[in-house]
Amino acid sequence: MDLGLLYSAGKDSSLAALLLDSFYDVTLVTATFGITDDWTHAERAAESTGFPFEHLELDQPVAEEAVDRLVEDGFPRNAIQRVHLHALEELAEDEFSAIADGTRRDDRVPSVSRAQAQSLEDRHGVDYVAPLSGFGRSAVDRLVEAHLDVESGPSESISRADYEAELRTLLVEREGRDAVAEVFPDHEQTYVTGFR
């Protein structure tokens, strides 16, 4: 059965690919708005892991709406959540029998509620799978340590292909560079360079 996995080249989505590989024909899919070419980082990571890769274009108005939300809220949670749900909707319209993401049990954002998952499945005739939904951060970190080669560091210094990178770019264009520091908290980013 073909499964499209939303892929950022980070540890969570890469670990999800490993977990799903025994049950599905996994394709790593990076969804972007075409604002940057950061999706190529995910393409390189996919090549290093041996999984097929696709690039999915999202609707530009959703990016604009997300940046409006960033400015209005002063934090990224609602904007990232909106983009993630849009990406799942677009992925569900693709040719896959199942779709998945790397959301974990303790993620605040993005997250997919039971009702949202059922709605996706019912409306698009796909299965939604969240293989890390029962794993906490420490369990994920132990599995990553055992199975993935990972670079990590501050968001600004690590190659990545997540929604945040493009939203940051749009935010800088609209509000200036200082707005990024005001809206996005400092956090560690990961980039997978291969499997062990």
Rank of each mutant, 00 (worst) to 15 (best):
D122A: 13
F33W: 10
Y163W: 07
E47K: 13
S119A: 11
E47Y: 04
T27Y: 01
D107Y: 10
D107T: 09
A139D: 14
V129L: 09
P76Y: 07
Q60L: 13
E57W: 02
I158Y: 05
S159K: 12
H41Y: 15
G50F: 03
G74N: 10
V67M: 06
V83P: 01
A45S: 15
R105K: 15
F135D: 06
H86Q: 11
D59W: 09
Y24N: 04
H41I: 01
Q118M: 10
T27I: 04
R114S: 09
D107H: 11
G153D: 08
L170F: 05
V109R: 06
V71L: 15
I35M: 10
E72S: 14
L167M: 14
D162H: 04
L88K: 10
V109F: 13
Q81V: 06
R44C: 00
Y24E: 02
A92E: 01
A92R: 05
V26Y: 03
I99R: 09
V144M: 04
S111Q: 11
R114E: 11
E47P: 00
G134T: 10
G125A: 10
V67P: 03
F135R: 11
T36P: 06
E54Q: 14
L28P: 01
F53G: 00
Q118S: 08
G153E: 08
A117T: 06
E93V: 01
V109P: 01
V150P: 01
V150A: 05
R104L: 11
I158G: 06
R108D: 12
F23P: 00
A45E: 01
A139S: 12
G102F: 03
Y24V: 02
F75E: 14
E151G: 01
D38V: 11
H147I: 01
L88D: 00
D68C: 07
L28I: 07
D38K: 05
F23E: 13
T169I: 00
V140N: 07
